[in-house]
Amino acid sequence: MMHAFILHFGILRTVLRRIFASPLSGTLNIIVIGIALSLPAGMYVLLQNAQGAVVQLSGSPQISLFLKLGTTTESIEALRKQLNQHTDIDSAEFVSKKNALEQLKQSTGLEDLIGGLEKNPLPDAFVIHPKQGEAQALEALRSELADLSGVEQAQLDSAWAYKLEALLELGRVAVLIIASLLSVALVAITFNTIRLQILTQREEIEVSKLIGATNAFIRRPFLYFGATQGLLGGCAAYLIISISLLLLNIQLKDLAELYASQFSLAHMTWTDSISLLLFSMYLGWLGSWLSVSRHLSNIEPR
């Protein structure tokens, strides 16, 4: 066990030396991989943040039922009964025009302006919490409620959130496409680096085969090379994203202060970060595996 550990550690050391044998091209390779990975991963981070914001802002969906002006107390009571008995409605809360005006005063800080109004322009309303959350069911409920007598207008409060959600879904598909394309590019980069490595170590491979090295033994350092390069590329991507978020958050802080909000962009979760590193490592390994399988059999001692 200890012996195997020393053996693999030795290979790792050799591999690191080879990656940085020419420091510039080694570093450039890692940066290229880092940039290729940071694009989709960075977009993913932004999407996650947008998603979080949508959930936070929309809360649970509500339908606002605005009643016609001058609706009598009796018909309001009748409506309340009807709403409470409706199977799709969880609860219905009556907001009188007086309460609505109070709330408006408090939440917007437009006290002076509202105080100057001659009469209350707001209608009586019901705020309805539906049982179901799907966009279609909500829309059906909304149009049903709009047709009730005494109702002026029924408004689905979180409609915009659903539209944004659909837009985010579009973004996710875009990220997936970009990620797939750049993964292929990453495999290609590693494939080529390993091909060059094999060429420069042609002699060593030949001699090793002559003195009894198995294919697995010869392949191992190249696979380590690809995986290590991929992993370092993943770290570079993580670093790029971290720095970008830092810069964006500095700007966002000023912007958020103007709106008296505390909004800032969150970094990847731990699981996402580790997934990113493992994935980039896997891609590097895959590229070198393809390259080694393709090129190693061409080198036979003569």
Binding site: E203, E204, E206, V207, K209, L210, I211, G212, A213, T214, F217
Partner: peptide, 19 residues
């Protein structure tokens, strides 16, 4: 099986094949 055969042989090459 070739690697295991070659491990039993010591070969001294005409062109040395040193690294």
């Amino acid at each position: 099986a070739l690697p295991y055969l070659r491990r039993n042989l010591g070969i001294i090459f005409q062109d040395h094949k040193l690294l």
